[in-house]
Design a protein around this nucleic acid. Structure first.
Lengths: 230, 230
DNA sequence: TCAAAAGTGTTCCTGGTACACCCATGC
DNA sequence: GCATGGGTGTACCAGGAACACTTTTGA
């Protein structure tokens, strides 16, 4: 069923950069292996065409679920890539979105246009289709900047967590080590955390105190931004 | 000459938020009065459809010149607005771009789809077409954030300028007054400025020393970002 | 001589940085 | 009793905030 317009239109797509963290280890990105041309067999960011009547953010969520099974992910708009030539078939403008998830919670399975779906280290991805290597670099930069301006962690950590777990999140995203004492002092000063009276159980070392996010403060700082230098 | 596709496509447009500064006075935004439906007679952001084979940024530059006569403006991508319903005709996805220019240098004339083109105070714009009031708010917020992360002023000031002129730029964008002594100390510390041996002429008060930007430092900090708190 | 903006220093305090040792727990 | 991560304090220094008076110039 063909659709006809008075003037030609670029195609509109979305791409998803899903960053993944594990309890330990470095930052990962979720990729799919393409089933179809162009770039059949190549790894790529999950994504696809925006339907008429669908907000780009919705389209990103839908495509992510269709191709990788991931859902209920907090996707944020990154930026739009629209140079002609980024897709060999025709002019395709893509609105990139990114998200941060816990790898352990995310049961990923390939489907739809994806032959496989898998996590790769952000720093050493396989050869990617289209301009996705560039998009990935931009997304990683922006993620590191966001870490300085917004609270991070609610999507990544269990409801109650230790300060070391939170510190690992920051270390994985920034790719560097942080001084434990300074990190604790600063993060407690923000008011984002509430100490619970519980501690870890069954750990082969001194049990750490568990904290949770203060929901109101988290929302407020997520919205209006703050400055958290590490 | 109609164009036909296998699946329907949202329309793709660009919008331009051009912020303007004068020597004194508050921050302005450049608007056009629409000639055509929908919203004929309403004020709106300059913008229009993206051609196939044209990068959105190019389209923004082209539309801005067609409708307002402004050219050689440094436009940066802001974000993409694509909720269905933002345009009453059909689903239109718009990539918003913003720029910062000197009102005195910018000879603006309406043309093309614009009945008039004029500057309005950012804080008190007239009723706007589409969701342009929201886009304007987002753009203003992002401009204020950008002021803390990138050097600003090269597009706004003459090649040689006084520290007070630069301070007025910051005050207009932030909409608040800044302490003169603290501002001077901080801005000189960045290394962005080079003192010349010239001073103002013909001013009815003590003549101020003129400074210029250090091109290398400006480029470097524009690219990699820095933190400039005022 | 007046009006107008230029130019200049200091105090106080917050918060960044660097750094080393003892503590609790499970095995 | 040992391996493992948890937890804590201090000294030093950079830079943010608040604040008032003298200087230069043209009219």
């Amino acid at each position: 069923m063909p659709y006809t317009y008075a003037y030609p239109r670029p195609a509109l797509t979305v791409d998803c950069i899903v960053f993944g963290l594990e309890n330990a280890g470095d930052l990962k990105v979720l990729l799919i292996q393409r089933k179809n041309q162009p770039f059949a067999g190549r790894w790529a960011l999950p994504g696809g065409f925006v339907d008429v009547g669908e907000a780009p953010e919705q389209a990103a969520r839908r495509e992510l679920e269709e191709e990788t099974g991931l859902k209920n992910v907090f996707l944020e708009q990154l930026r739009t890539f629209g140079e002609p030539g980024r897709d060999p078939r025709e002019h395709v403008v893509s609105v990139a979105h990114d998200a941060l998830v816990n790898v352990a919670d995310a049961r990923v399975r390939a489907a739809d246009d994806a032959r496989q779906a898998a996590w790769f280290p952000v720093g050493r991805p396989p050869p990617l289709a289209f301009d996705h290597a560039k998009i990935l670099r931009v997304a990683h930069n922006r993620l590191q900047e966001r870490l300085r301006r917004r609270p991070v962690g609610r999507e990544l950590l269990p409801r109650k967590f230790t300060l070391s777990q939170l510190q690992h999140v920051y270390e994985a995203i920034l790719g560097k080590e942080i001084d434990k004492r300074n990190f604790r002092r600063r993060v407690l000063r923000t008011g984002l955390l509430v100490a619970t009276d519980q501690t870890q159980k069954q750990v082969p070392h001194r049990a750490a105190r568990l904290y949770r996010f203060d929901a109101r403060t988290y929302r407020r700082l997520a919205q209006q931004g703050f400055h958290f230098e590490v």
